[in-house]
Simulated scan of single mutants.
Amino acid sequence: MASLSQLPFKLPQDYFIDLARTVGVYTAPYLDPVEAAIVDQLEKYAPTAVHHVRGFLAAVESPLARELPLMNPFHVLLISLGYLFTIFVGMRIMKNFNRFEVKTFSLLHNFVLVSISAYMCGGVLYEAYQAKYTLFENQADHSAAGLPMAKMIWLFYFSKTMEFIDTMIMIVKKNNRQVSFLHVYHHCSIFTIWWLVTFVAPTGEAYFSAALNSFIHVIMYGYYFLSALGFKQVSFIKFYITRSQMTQFCMMMIQSSWDMYSMKVLGRPGYPFFITALLFVYMWTMLGLFYNFYRKNAKLAKEAKKVKAAAAATEKAKKLQ
Rank of each mutant, 00 (worst) to 15 (best):
273 F>S: 11
74 F>W: 12
183 H>Q: 13
138 N>M: 15
24 G>H: 09
184 V>A: 13
296 K>Y: 04
277 A>I: 01
158 F>A: 08
99 R>H: 04
270 G>P: 02
104 T>I: 11
130 Q>V: 10
118 A>F: 10
202 P>S: 04
286 M>L: 14
162 M>Y: 04
318 K>R: 14
265 V>A: 06
91 M>G: 05
1 M>I: 08
70 L>V: 09
148 P>H: 04
308 K>W: 10
314 T>K: 15
206 A>P: 05
184 V>I: 15
306 K>P: 07
8 P>Y: 15
69 P>G: 12
157 Y>H: 01
266 L>Y: 11
16 F>G: 02
225 F>Y: 12
279 L>G: 01
125 L>C: 15
303 E>V: 11
139 Q>A: 08
149 M>Q: 05
285 T>D: 04
304 A>K: 13
86 T>Y: 13
236 F>R: 13
256 S>K: 02
80 S>G: 00
93 I>W: 07
291 Y>T: 11
89 V>L: 15
216 I>W: 03
188 C>E: 06
273 F>C: 04
229 L>C: 09
300 L>M: 06
202 P>Q: 02
250 C>S: 13
69 P>V: 13
175 N>I: 01
121 C>F: 06
49 A>L: 11
34 V>W: 10
92 R>E: 12
284 W>H: 11
15 Y>Q: 09
239 F>E: 07
89 V>P: 00
308 K>F: 14
76 V>P: 03
108 L>H: 05
78 L>Y: 03
206 A>S: 15
180 S>F: 09
254 I>R: 00
39 V>I: 14
11 L>Y: 01
237 I>Y: 03
289 L>C: 07
314 T>S: 14
265 V>K: 09
106 S>Q: 08
61 E>F: 04
231 F>A: 12
202 P>D: 01
271 Y>K: 00
118 A>G: 10
69 P>K: 07
173 K>L: 11
120 M>H: 06
78 L>E: 04
183 H>F: 12
311 A>K: 15
170 M>C: 05
16 F>C: 07
154 W>Q: 02
244 S>E: 03
140 A>V: 03
115 S>D: 14
19 L>Y: 14
216 I>P: 02
220 M>I: 06
